[in-house]
Design a protein around this nucleic acid. Structure first.
Lengths: 224, 224, 224, 224
DNA sequence: AATGAATGAGGATTCATTCAT
DNA sequence: AATGAATGAATCCTCATTCAT
C-alpha cells in the first residue's frame, strides 16, 4: 500500500518538523488514506467507463477529495491509470510467486488454484479489471507489457511446470500440452469475459465447467 | 448492402429515375462509396482507439470526406459505433447460419470450422473487433446483446449440436461437454486475445494449439 | 404575387424558346407556385422560431422543395427574410392607401378600421408578424425602416387626419390628441402583443377594450 | 443577491471557514464579481442579438472570463437566458409590490408611477429587455409565464385598484375601464416599443403623450 | 497539503451555402 | 430549373490541468 509513486516525497518530513509530537504521522496517514480513496475510486470509475470516458471530476467526487488533490498523488490521468492498473495487478504477482500448494495430485493442485482464481476474480470487480486490460492494452503498451511480464508469462510458466510434473507422473497423457499452457487457462479466461458480458443473458457455472475441463485434460475421475 | 440506416432518405428514388442508361447511378454509387469509406475509416479508428478516444475528425480525414458528411449517414457518434459493429458482425452471422460442412468425422468438421475462424479472425483486424466488443460491451449493452444473440448463442448452439453428434458417434467420451460448448471454443478466444495483446511478446501458434486442444477432447489421433 | 425580386429574371424567356407552344408558361407558373410555397413556409418558420433559429432545411421541407431551390429565388437567408417581411407587409400598405371608408361619424370610421385590424391581425398569424418585426427590427434596420416608412408613418398620418377631422367636427374635445395619433392605436398594439404572449393566461376581449377606448376618446355614447 | 442557481455548489462553505478576518471572502467575492460580469455581458449580448444569435464566446469575451467559466455559473445557454431574464425582472416585481405612493388625486398617483416607468424603462436598456421578452416569449414559455405572473398580472391588478379608486372618487367617469386596465398602460407599451424601434425615425415625447392620455381618461385639467 | 475556481484547447454537432448532376 | 449530397466554418459544451488561496 505505501508504494508512493509519482510525486509526494518529503511531505512527511516537513509535517513532523511542524508538529513535534502527539498525534504525529496523522498528516501522512491522512494523505495515505486519501491516496487509497483516490485509487479505489479511480479503479471503480475506470472499470465502469474505460480510460477515455472517465472524468477526474467523478473520481474526485467518489473519493471525497478535491480535483486538485489527485494531482498531488499522480502526474496526470494517464500515469494515474497505468499506476493504478499496476497496483491492482501486484497482489496477483505475489500470489503467483508464492510457494505452490503442496497437494497430492497435480489435478488437485490445479483445481485448487483455478477455484481460487474463479472465486477471487471471476464474478468480482477484478474480472472487469482483466477486461479493462484487454480493452486498453493496445493504447497502453506499458500496461500490456507489464501484465504480460508479471502475470501472463509467470502464470504460464507456473502452469507449464505443473503440466510437466503431471506428465512425468502420468496424470496427463498428452505431451504437447506442455507447449500450450494457455489451454489449461483458457476456460478461466472465457469465464471471466463471460461474467463481464453475458452473465445476465445466460449464467455460467464456471466451476462445473472447470471440472469438465480438467476431466478432459486429466481424464475423468473414476468414481471408485 | 448499403443498408442506408439513419438519415439520408429520398435521394435514391430520384436518382433511379434519373438513370436509365450508361454510367448511371453515379450519384447513388458515389454516396455508397463514401459511406463505405466512412465505415472503413471509422472501424479502423474505433479499433485503434476505442469509442471514446476516437475523434470524428480523424474518421472524416481518413475517409477523405468532410466532417459533416458523416452526419448524412449516421445520426451521431454513438449510433455510428453501434451500427458499425453490427454491420461488421453480420458476415459472421450468415456464416454461422450456413449449412454445416458435411465432413466425415465430427473432429474434422470442428477442425475445419476452427481453422477457418483462426484464419479469418485471429491475426486479422477482426480479432480487434472482438476485443472492441469485449472492451465496449458494458457501455453499449445494445452491442453486447446483439453480439450474444446473433453470434455467441448461435455459435454455442451449433457447437453443442456437433458435440452431441460426436458423443452419439463415440468420438467424444466426456458427456458433460454438452453443457459447456464454451470449452470447445475457449482456445480460440484465447488465441484472438493473445494475438491482439501479446503476439509481439511471444508469438502463438494458434493452429498447433488447436490441434492439441482437439486431441484432448477427441483423443489423440493414432498415427496408424 | 409576381414581384419576383432577387434573381430569376430571364427564365421565362428561355423556357418559351425551348417549348414553342402548348402547355407554355407552365414552367414559369410552376416556378411561381414554388416561390409562393417557399414564401409561405418561410413565413411560418420565421414566425415560429425567429430569424436565427429558423433552418432553411425546415423551410424547404415545409415548402416541399429542395434546399437548393430556395437559392434560385433568394440570394441568402437574410435577404429572404427581409424580402419576406416586406412582401407580407405590402397588403397593409395598399390597404392604408385605399380610400378612407366614407362613414358618417369619425368614430364610426375609426371603429370600422380598428375592428378590421383586430379581425385581420390580432388573433391571426399576422399578429406574430408584428411581433417578429418588433423582435428582429434592431438587427434588421432595413426592415424597421421599411415598416416605419410604409406602415407606421402612413398609418399615423391617416389617423392624424381622422383626428383632425373629428376635432373639427367636435367629436373629439382633446386637441392635443393630434400630436399623438399613437394613442389612438396603442390599444391595438397591446391587443396584438397580448394575443401573442398571454392569451392562454388570460383571454382578452379586444373588441370590448376597443369600445371602451373609443368611449374615452370620443366620449361615451349616449344610449338615447 | 447572487442567488447562485445552477451549478457551482460547495465552495462558499469552505470559503467562509477560511475567512475569519481581514480582506476575507476574496475568493467568494471574486466569484460573485465574475458572475455579475457574466450576467451583465450576457444581458447586453442577448438584448443586442436575441437568444439564438448570441454567442457564448462573445459573452465570455465581454465579461472578461473564459468560456468555461460561464458553465460554472449556468447549466447551459438556455437556462442562463431564462435565469437572466428573471433576474432582470425581479427589481420590478419588488417595485410593484412596494407600498403605493400616497398621493392626493389618483391621477397624480398614476402620473407619478407612469413617469417613473418612462424614466426607468423607456429609453433605457430595460426597454430592450421588454422587447426581448416580447421577441423570445413564444420560444421560452417559462419566461412568458414568469413575466405574466410576476409583472403583468400584478401590474394590471394594481392598476385596476387605482381605477376603482378613481371611479369611486369620481375622478374617472368611464366605469368599463375597470375591465381593461391594459388601456391605462397601453401608451407606455407603445412608448417602450417606439423607443426601441423608431426613435431615430421620429423622436417621441413620451411624457407629453402620457399627459394627453391621462387627460383623456381623467378629463383635461382645468387651467385654473 | 488541500482546495476548487478558472482556464482554454478540443471535440461533437449543426446548418447556410455550393455545385455537380 | 431543380435537386440534395457535400462542405466546413461556426458554435455549444466538456474536461484535464493549473494555481492562487
Amino acid at each position: 500500500m505505501p508504494e508512493r509513486t509519482s510525486k509526494s516525497s518529503g511531505g512527511g518530513t516537513r509535517a513532523s518538523k511542524a508538529r513535534a509530537g502527539g498525534t504525529a504521522a496523522s498528516r501522512a496517514d491522512r494523505a495515505a488514506e486519501r491516496r487509497a480513496a483516490i485509487v479505489q475510486a479511480a479503479m471503480d470509475e475506470f472499470i465502469a467507463r474505460g480510460f477515455a470516458a472517465t472524468r477526474l471530476d467523478d473520481i474526485a467526487r467518489r473519493a471525497g477529495v478535491a480535483k486538485g488533490t489527485i494531482y498531488l498523488h499522480f502526474k496526470d490521468k494517464e500515469s494515474m491509470f497505468e499506476e493504478l492498473i499496476r497496483t491492482a495487478i501486484l497482489p496477483f504477482v505475489s500470489r503467483l510467486a508464492a510457494p505452490p500448494p503442496p497437494s497430492g495430485s497435480v489435478r488437485d493442485m490445479v483445481e485448487v488454484l483455478a477455484k481460487m482464481f474463479l472465486q477471487e476474480v471471476a464474478g468480482t470487480r477484478r474480472a472487469d479489471l482483466v477486461r479493462l486490460i484487454i480493452a486498453e492494452g493496445p493504447r497502453f503498451p506499458a500496461i500490456a507489457d507489464f501484465y504480460y511480464r508479471e502475470v501472463v508469462s509467470r502464470g504460464l510458466a507456473a502452469m507449464r511446470g505443473l503440466i510437466q510434473l503431471a506428465i512425468a507422473r502420468g496424470e496427463i497423457r498428452e505431451p504437447k500440452l506442455v507447449q500450450f499452457p494457455q489451454l489449461m487457462i483458457a476456460p478461466m479466461m472465457v469465464a471471466v469475459i463471460w461474467k463481464s458480458l453475458f452473465e445476465h443473458h445466460a449464467p455460467l457455472d464456471a466451476e462445473a465447467m472447470l471440472h469438465t475441463h480438467l476431466d478432459l485434460i486429466f481424464g475423468a475421475r473414476r468414481p471408485t
